[in-house]
Amino acid sequence: MTDLPPYRILSHQIEGLNNVLKTQALAKSYGRIKAVKSLDLEVSEGAVFGILGPNGSGKSTTLSMLLGILTPDAGSFTWFGQAPEPALRKDIGALLEQPNFYPYLSARKNLEIACLIKECSTTRVNTVLEQVGLLPRAESAFKTFSTGMKQRLAIASALLADPKVLVLDEPTNGLDPQGIAEVRELIIAIAERGKTILLASHILDEVEKVCTHVAVIKQGQLLAQGSVLDILRNQHQVELRADDMAALEQALAGYAPAAQRRRDGNLIVLSMIGEPDGTALNRYLFEQGLVLSHLRIHKKRLEESFLEITAKA
């Protein structure tokens, strides 16, 4: 494993710290449609926690419940170890789905209102506008902004009270490639300052690039939760075939470097712990009296991990 992104350095600092957020059996239905089914999440301090799932998997619904917009049908959650109450949300900066501002007010006036709500100093307005590169347009009305600028203003608003936690729902939605790169850099920069970030996204690449931890959800159900390394790591895989597949399977059962074994058509696929050694594997099997007709080593791509996890549901 070369070129480690910066988050890998952070991840070891996270163990054993306090929970910022904990949900217990959180559930929400819209009529007969169950948007979120009994969700248990745990986000520790300093984590960049990704909620990964396809569109309509219940990500926004979950975040809306956590931010007090939706009332859960069942279950409970705590922020900073306390039962939810409005004042706690002042320590949470959030961007949910789309930026919500008064179209006729300037960027500055909109942020000043947010300042009054969050009870923070209005001197922060310039700081955050600068941070997202909107200071030159501070006096323009929100309705004159482009999609990207609106999104950046929403991020500025989320940063306004210098919150402990940042909740971002698809923060790169509707942005151009440059804007996406900027937002991701911003998120990483904020995370490096020790903030906890909760990021919902359907883009795997985004979660992999910025998150330390991830929860994969589909149709409102939690499929997997853990560190990005564990859940979405770039595992090496070995494909094997022999004439006597039953004997091969039996022989592989005792092969220690394989973390996981599954049948895929007429192949056996091994997920390896660490760098696979093709020679050693071949020799091991030969010693068991097996001759391979196929041996291929490849890196499992993230998409495969994701599809593997979501296909199980």
Binding site: R89, A94, L96, Y102, I117, S157
Partner: peptide, 21 residues
Amino acid sequence: TNEYSNRTFRQHIIDGLGRND
């Protein structure tokens, strides 16, 4: 009604106002 169409009631809640507020 502006608060609903601009979704600012929603934003106020997110920002830390209570529904009573």
